[in-house]
């Protein structure tokens, strides 16, 4: 039996020791707000299927100051996610080649922003004049 007490390096708060790790943990934490927002939409869908009265209750709940505060933080979280997601995409996808030359990472990142902004505008245009 091993009775020696071997030294185990403490790991608590390891991510607070370096700004890179802090940004990493913030990125991971954005998923909490993503998950809660998806559940908010799910409750909306449940209330929608229960009929007009219950759906209108859900709409009223969405105007609650806590709900507004949550969505403000959630908006910041999803924007942070978006920036980090676009930044790592060139490292995740296999290298793209056009006419034999490799497409620079910056182009892939920029292309994603162009597509994303286009999609945001389309989505906004769909509700703008309602």
């Amino acid at each position: 039996m091993n009775t020696r007490k071997s030294y185990i390096r403490p790991m608590e708060g390891w991510w607070l020791k370096n700004p890179f790790y802090i940004r990493y943990m913030i990125r991971e934490a954005t998923s909490i707000f993503v998950g809660i927002y998806a559940l908010v939409l799910l409750t909306g869908l449940v209330s929608l299927s229960c009929g007009e009265a219950s759906y209108n209750n859900w709409l009223v709940a969405m105007t609650n100051p806590i709900a507004i505060l949550f969505h403000l933080i959630a908006l910041a979280a999803v924007i942070y996610h978006t920036i980090t997601w676009f930044a790592v995409a060139p490292k995740v996808v296999s290298p793209l080649f056009i006419a034999g030359t490799r497409v620079p990472d910056m182009f892939i990142v920029a292309a994603q922003y162009v597509i994303a902004i286009l999609l945001y505008l389309i989505l906004f245009a769909m509700v703008w004049k309602v």
């Binding site: 927002y37 709409l59 403000l72």
Partner: peptide
Amino acid sequence: VVAFILPMLVFITGLAVPLGFLSPEVMAY
């Protein structure tokens, strides 16, 4: 989906409509 849709969707469903920037008709039953 989170990157390409959610920033605008969170803004519309969570802020713009509840706060009245957009017409309540947007999310009407």
